[in-house]
Design a protein around this nucleic acid. Structure first.
Lengths: 215, 215
DNA sequence: TTGCTCGGTTAGTGAGCGTTAACCTCGCCA
DNA sequence: TGGCGAGGTTAACGCTCACTAACCGAGCAA
């Protein structure tokens, strides 16, 4: 509950390092001693801040899931207030998701890799948030491409998530272009994919509504 | 080395169940007793067939990496022999990768999730095969879209892999359309993504060379 | 000062789990 | 018939590792 620009509290510091380590070597591959060492305290001192290792992972995954979902909802409401076209709303969703993927690589990695190390209740919660987030996208996609059947729209959304979340999986991020180039590229890829999903199935042919790219 | 249509040997049976279990609950989340139970023997009996749990994972990951790479190479040579255009070669690569992704979901999941549980030497080997596979694609993509810079081409390839490999991550595969619909959809998505990657950066605008889709 | 809480420490414990040891029993070949 | 290797079994070992116990020093309020 700390206000946003405070110096990072101990808890947040621990969560940050834990996220990094979990993403690098997997939840089971990291010991509590290492997490402690990463923030300058050692081992069981962590238990002053968290109930256990599981609790850290849970807080990370619930946190990122909530941030994604809330961010998505905000896109929709803001787009609605501004009276934007569906295609522009979809662009906003893509944009925001790319920001997450590039800024919080570790969390994105955890989000689709360590989900099933959670206690049942937490896993249910995370999955529900994921599902809501997906449905948010599906709704917009189907506004943009009315002819696309729901199942295909949903599969497309999952596929585009896989596309957008691909960069954190890179072993050596130096292989990527700089951030703005990468973001622009991912955006083009995602838009192109959605447009192609609808090809031959609706007449509106598409997603180049925003800023006339070539073609 | 058993010929393809033999009844599955014990080793293969074990590998199959191990792959399924590892994909479902993670390498560290599965005990040797469970793997044994899945094939009707119990616990340490596995050590008559494998040096250890690590060896199973290694064989799985090296195996799938080699199959992917060899399959990719075969696409290239066959396309060259048939005198196909680069765009058609890319289609063949996509097609084959989709087959892998849909038929060997468990292996695909392991392939980008459990890589770093391997011994150094095995991990090096797998990474090298992965890299070669990627470069195969990068070469073809750059033939199809000559203006696309190499780094962006490589990032696009990674992203499209993420896209194509997205279906195994689904918690409940029943949410997907039937196989041929899914395969066709994924193919359209991938082609659309590559085409969009090059938009505004080359003049050739394109991947609709194969079988004129709409638009 | 007294005393309490907050955030550390080190030592220890107990469970889980990969692996090994020792033993058994078929089927097969000489 | 005798032996032997392939493929099982159960029991046990030992290590790793999350977590707990017990203790401690600084700040700070009454």
């Amino acid at each position: 509950m700390s206000s946003r620009t405070d110096a990072p509290t101990r808890r947040e510091q621990i969560l940050g390092e834990a996220a990094r380590l979990f993403a690098e070597r997997g939840f089971h591959g990291v010991g509590v001693d290492e997490i402690g060492a990463a923030v300058g305290i050692s081992g069981p001192g962590l238990y002053r801040h968290f109930a256990g290792k599981d609790a850290m992972l849970a807080e990370l995954l619930v946190g990122i899931s909530e941030r994604l979902y809330r961010g998505g909802r905000r896109c929709l409401t803001e787009s609605a207030e501004a009276g934007l076209a569906p295609a522009a709303t979809l662009d906003a969703l893509v944009e925001r998701h790319i920001d997450f993927a590039l800024d919080d690589r570790a969390l994105i990695t955890l989000h689709d890799r360590e989900l099933d190390r959670l206690r049942d209740s937490d896993r249910k919660l995370v999955r529900q948030l994921q599902r809501q987030y997906v449905e948010l996208w599906v709704g917009v996609v189907r506004e943009v491409h009315p002819g696309l059947p729901e199942k295909e729209a949903r599969a497309s959304v999952h596929a585009v998530f896989g596309l957008l979340n691909s960069t954190p999986h890179l072993s050596r991020p130096s292989a990527l272009p700089d951030r703005v180039t990468t973001a622009a590229l991912l955006h083009r890829l995602a838009r192109g994919a959605f447009a192609a999903a609808a090809d031959g199935v609706d007449g509106t042919d598409g997603a180049e509504g925003a800023d006339g790219a070539a073609l």
